[in-house]
Every structure is written in C-alpha cells, then in structure tokens.
C-alpha cells in the first residue's frame, strides 16, 4: 500500500555536524522553582498554620504569638528574603510555566493529568489569594495584625469564602507540589515508589486543608478546642 513516510527535512547540501546540547539556565530556574515551593514557602506555610492555630487556644495566645513574630529582629529583610521574594518568584515563574503548558484533559482524562491541570489552576488561585491576604493582613495593618483584624475580615461572607477556597487551593498545591518535587528531584523512581509518595504527600495536603479549615472555623464560630490549655 502506498504509505511511505514523507519524512524529515529537505536535503542539506552536505552532511552537517550536530553538537551536543549544553545545559541551559532554565534548568536551574526550574529546579529553584520547585525547591522554593518546599523551602522556604512550604516551610513558612507550615509555620504560618502553626502560629495561626493559636486561634484555637485563645485570643490572647493568638495575639501574643502574632506579636512575637511581628517583633523579631531584622523583620523586614527576613520577611523579604524568606517570604516575599520566594513567593513572588515561585508565583511569577509558575505563571510562566503555566503559559508553556496546554491542558488536554478533554482527550486524556487520566488521574495524573487531572492533578497536573489542578496544580496549574490551584497555583493561580493560591497566588491571587496570597497576594490579597498579604495586602490585607500585613500591609493594611501596618504589620500589626491582631486576632481582631482577621476576625473582621472573616465576618464578611465574601471574604470568608475566598479564605476557604484559598486554603483548599494552597493545601492542594502544596501537597501535590511535594509529590511533584519527589518526582522532579528523582527521590522516587519505581511505579510503586511513586504511588507510595502520592499517598504520603496526599495525606500531607489533606492535613493542611483540615488544619486550615479548622482555624477558619475557630475564627468564625469562636471555637477554641484547646482553650483549657490556657486556663
């Protein structure tokens, strides 16, 4: 049957040499992107959920914890280097990566492809949410945010739902990002190892989502399950 390949490029006049590819900077930028999601951003996220969990103890303890953080030495440079810069980098570079992909879920609706698509969208949501969150709780309060400030924001149903969506997006993005990290840094290779890593990182993502929602719950319903610690 007449079905030959109309293959490859037109003829070059002579044989031509092809050098090996050389490492590109984008490799380092990409690796920094995935690393920055874990350290410092992921680490800060854990710390942030931890200190906000004081809301589940008492208003005083919450304000005390906030005050302790707001009065660390070298506060602004530390914030800039460990939080703002990494988040800005991770966010903007993430958008760049996002722009290089084309989701094809409608054709290939496999599990991991869903996770890839969700990672893109939750990343975008998280970036907007974090920007808004920092603006409202850090800059609007001149860096002196208290329990009262947060509780006021949450009283608005619109802002509250944004918080819920934001927390879920961030938790998913972090949990799935950990799995991505395990793959991208070659920490897991075999299919079983990949699957186990998915369970573990998935559990971490769920843990963050649950803790985050409980904190919101605490703010909205004045629910303080650990209040007896402070008594």
């Amino acid at each position: 049957m007449p079905a030959k390949a109309a293959a490859t490029a037109e003829v070059t006049p002579e044989a031509t040499t092809v050098p090996a590819a050389v490492p590109s900077r984008s490799y380092i930028w990409d690796k920094l992107h995935s690393l920055s999601g874990i350290v410092p951003i992921g680490a800060f996220l854990a710390e942030h959920f931890w200190s906000n969990s004081y809301a589940l103890v008492s208003i005083d303890r919450y304000n005390q914890a906030s005050y302790d953080l707001q009065t660390i030495p070298w506060r602004v440079p530390v914030e800039a280097l460990l939080i703002w810069l990494p988040i800005l980098y991770h966010g903007f570079y993430g958008v760049y990566i996002w722009s290089k992909g084309e989701s094809n879920l409608s054709r290939y609706g496999y599990g991991a492809n869903w996770m890839y698509a969700l990672q893109r969208w939750t990343g975008l949501i998280a970036f907007v949410f974090i920007g808004w969150h920092v603006y409202v709780e850090r800059f609007m309060t001149q860096g002196r945010s208290t329990y009262f400030d947060v509780a006021t924001t949450m009283a608005n149903p619109l802002y509250l739902s944004f918080y819920v969506i934001g927390i879920l997006a961030v938790s998913f993005h972090f949990g799935n990002g950990l799995w991505q990290f395990a793959n991208k840094w070659g920490l897991v290779v075999g299919r079983d190892a990949q699957r186990k890593a998915a369970w573990i990182t998935g559990a971490i993502g769920v843990l963050f989502a649950v803790v985050g929602l409980l904190i919101i719950f605490g703010f909205v319903f004045q629910w303080r399950p650990f209040q007896f610690y402070a008594q």
Binding site: K31, N113, W179
Partner: peptide
Amino acid sequence: HERLQAVRGIGGIQECDNAQNCVKA
C-alpha cells in the same frame, strides 16, 4: 556526563510537569 548536561539543555527534562499521559499512551 555529556548526556546529563545535554538533558538539562533548552527544552530538557526540567520541562516535565508530571502529567504522566506519556506512560498511558
């Protein structure tokens, strides 16, 4: 080493975002 350098080139392994459709296809 030469291959590992090359695979970090433009369009190299860093572009993979683990959608993992490849293995299914």
